[in-house]
Design a protein around this nucleic acid. Structure first.
Lengths: 210, 210
DNA sequence: GTCTATATGACGATAGAC
DNA sequence: GTCTATCGTCATATAGAC
């Protein structure tokens, strides 16, 4: 097998295992076995276990996850923002977030491990992704407050509430309630509910959002 | 030092280290050093590292965290429930949760590690604690729906939204935004905001909760 | 109860043959 | 590019002296 392809394969095995068992819970032997090669091959492609972790950060998958913001290439969302369709804005961000999180559980777990273990991924995710979300969505809330459409609540608190619902819901599905014992609903239903909940909390009008 | 006290001391060191670095990221040597004893002492009190983890589950601290529900001994909350003071109910649960989570960061981290690593603590926490919260708070929501005071939304979705805000806020403070770069507010402010947000989302009246 | 010393194996990493 | 064999170190766990 050519070097590039093998390298990719080992990297993928490492992502799988690090996301399942964490960095210190994964051995280079495990990674080699899952890749179907000997341990020596792992160290031929990556000079150390740490470098292997570093390579994951640079890998296509992580870079994408870190830089593909909800609003990029999301026509429905951009349209909603332009038209000041508040429900559309929150609903589309919600759907996008829940779908993404559901489709890449390995990345989510990697992210949580890295936050606990104090690895670089968590820091980068926070600085490059989360902060941007606060800026973007918080900015939208500010604009709607200037329009007189939203109540004058700290926009950051609005964003925190909304992200809280989304992330906690995913976290539940990924970590605790994998078999959906408590609640088994579609991402669409969840996003709809969360968006409505936020809107009735921030809307200046007396009638709650429908 | 007497056996009981030493045992307690080693257990505490283990909690500290497991919560900081996870199970596989912590060595028995680390635990011994932090306890100020030799490694042999650790194995005198606990026959294996696994048993040490098991003992943590049985320890006073974890049992308390697993069985001290927000409504036990919380007069303000019980009074609010009796009086159907909706804001009081959500606000007091919020304060209680945020305060507890802030005061026992080690337990929170242990809980997250255990969820990722698939240890028993996470399962027990979910089955013995989280489910009870859903029953209790969901039950209150149902009662208020019967009163005609709350909209007919799935109570579990209401609870999920509220817990989402609370847990995500704590998680942010513990894991990502330790220096409170995005948002630095008191637990009281946060609980007040989250309670108001939920209430305006579920209230049947046309005027949002103040 | 506490230690030093040590057994046994796992883990990260390398050497060298093919 | 791939392997087997191996090295040094660290980790869990034990033996036995004090």
């Amino acid at each position: 097998m050519p070097g590039d392809k093998r390298r990719e394969q080992i990297l993928q095995s490492a992502v799988d295992l690090f996301s399942k068992r964490g960095f210190s819970g994964t051995t280079t032997k495990d990674i080699a076995r899952l890749s179907g090669v000997s341990e020596a091959m792992v160290f031929r492609h990556f000079s150390s276990k740490d470098e292997l972790y570093g390579a994951i950060l640079e890998a296509k998958k992580c870079s994408e996850a870190l830089h593909q913001f909800p609003w990029e290439g999301n026509q429905a969302l951009l349209k909603a923002i332009e038209e000041r369709d508040d429900f559309g804005v929150f609903y589309n961000i919600g759907i996008q977030a829940l779908t993404k999180q559901e489709s890449d559980i390995a990345f989510m777990r990697l992210l949580f491990y890295s936050a606990l273990e104090g690895h670089e991924l968590a820091e980068r995710f926070f600085g490059e992704y989360v902060l941007e979300i606060y800026k973007f969505l918080g900015g939208y809330v500010e604009r709607r407050q200037a329009d007189g459409a939203f109540k004058r609540i700290d926009p950051r608190l609005v964003v925190r509430s909304f992200l809280g619902m989304l992330i906690h819901h995913s976290l539940n599905n990924i970590l605790w309630d994998k078999r959906r014992l408590i609640l088994d609903i579609s991402n669409e239903e969840a996003a709809k509910h969360f968006a409505e909940m936020i809107l009735s909390g921030v809307s200046a009008e007396r009638t709650a959002a429908k």
